[in-house]
Computed example of a mutant assay.
Amino acid sequence: MITDVFSIRYEDTPIWSAFTERDRRFLVQAAKLVTEQLFPRTYSGDSENADASLKTVNDRVATEIGLLHLGQPWIQLSNQWHKRTIADQLSGFMMDTFQDAFSPDLFMKIRISVVELAFRIREEQVAALKESLPARKADLKARFAKTSGGIATTVAQLNKLEAQTQSLNKMFEEAVIELNERMLRAHFPLSYHRGFIQISNDATVAAIVEKPFWALVSAPLWENVAIDMARAVDLRDNNKRDASLYASKALESTLKIISDKKGWTTGHEVGPVNYVNNLVSKNNGRFIEVWEQESLHKLFSDARSPFGHGPGTAPMPSMTPQQASWAIEVSMSWIKSLINRL
């Protein structure tokens, strides 16, 4: 199984030129965040679940960077060897003393990979719990309906189940907020959202555009929007082509979802322009105004069309990093605006 890890994704993009006291501090904080807040040994009332999750993080990152394991599985105390818990093993790896055998950039990227994957796995687990909540409620009703106490017992158990799910979700959201704040304080140009740590150089844009955008597309309905936008950001960060193409694909998916949700899709649409027209139609109540229609048409024409078609013998189309950032930020802003109108 191939795992997308930060150190491989950004191996050609220098971020750290030196290992500083701020970096050391962050790694201690991140290790505690992963092993004590994301996966504490009281996790879900079963320490084995926490250990299994941390072992998955350990094994997947180790495989991708070409190691058998991260850190030391055994420790010698009083001339005897003792097996370390997976939490201690990962914490030891995260807080290991910087060695000159590694560049500061690679040393930090490998450890950021651990943090990223731990958060991604926990986010997937929390999302699965939320998605399975109706089924788990139905199972509880079936099990307790005929027991002594009947309705009262069932209601109490249902309330407990829902409270536990909400609590886990809140704990994860708070952990994400803390991670992003700690990366900001460490002066890292990074932020976490939807399973990935990505470059975010502009604090103002991050606060006003990126953070609200990722919050809005966290629901399952917008999953494809989030996937394409994450791809756009990765391409931009690594100075690769097609960042604007994937950003516009995310915007097109948003238009399609809204058109479908509102019942405006005719089945004859052949591209994003047709979906824009569905939203501006007077018969559909002018979801967007004519001037907005014109702006969206222009965006797709300039930032999407040149990259969505083969250039033939013409020069290969390209964008500067600044232009790619503009395309991503404008697409994010449009998506935010459109979703907030629903």
Rank of each mutant, 00 (worst) to 15 (best):
I151M: 15
A243F: 06
D96Q: 15
R25Y: 08
G310C: 11
A138P: 00
N278E: 13
D96K: 10
A203W: 01
E289D: 13
E131P: 01
L38C: 02
N79I: 05
A50W: 01
V330Q: 07
A31P: 07
I15D: 00
L90T: 00
L255R: 06
R185W: 07
E174G: 03
E173R: 12
I151T: 15
V280E: 10
A226C: 12
K336C: 10
L235H: 09
A327N: 07
F98D: 03
S78I: 13
G149R: 12
N201P: 00
I199K: 07
L221R: 13
F19I: 03
T153C: 06
A128G: 03
T265Y: 02
R111E: 04
K130V: 12
Q164A: 15
A145I: 10
I288C: 01
S218R: 13
T42N: 11
V5Y: 00
W264D: 06
I86G: 01
S53Y: 08
F6R: 00
R341W: 03
W264T: 05
L235A: 10
S91K: 09
S148Y: 15
G308R: 09
I257H: 08
E173A: 15
G263P: 02
E131C: 07
G45A: 05
H69Q: 10
P134V: 06
P220K: 07
S318H: 11
H268S: 14
H309T: 11
L279C: 08
S301H: 14
I208R: 14
R60T: 05
N79Q: 15
A127Q: 08
I110T: 08
R286C: 08
S148E: 15
K240D: 11
A138H: 09
V5R: 00
T204G: 05
A138R: 09
K137Y: 01
G263N: 05
S333Y: 06
L106W: 02
E11Q: 12
E36G: 04
W326N: 13
D202M: 02
W334D: 08
A142R: 08
T85S: 15
Y192G: 02
E174Y: 09
K170V: 01
F196H: 12
I288R: 02
K137F: 03
N224Q: 10
K32E: 13
T97E: 11
S333C: 04
L255Q: 06
T63H: 13
I177H: 14
D4F: 04
A206G: 06
A226R: 06
R24Q: 12
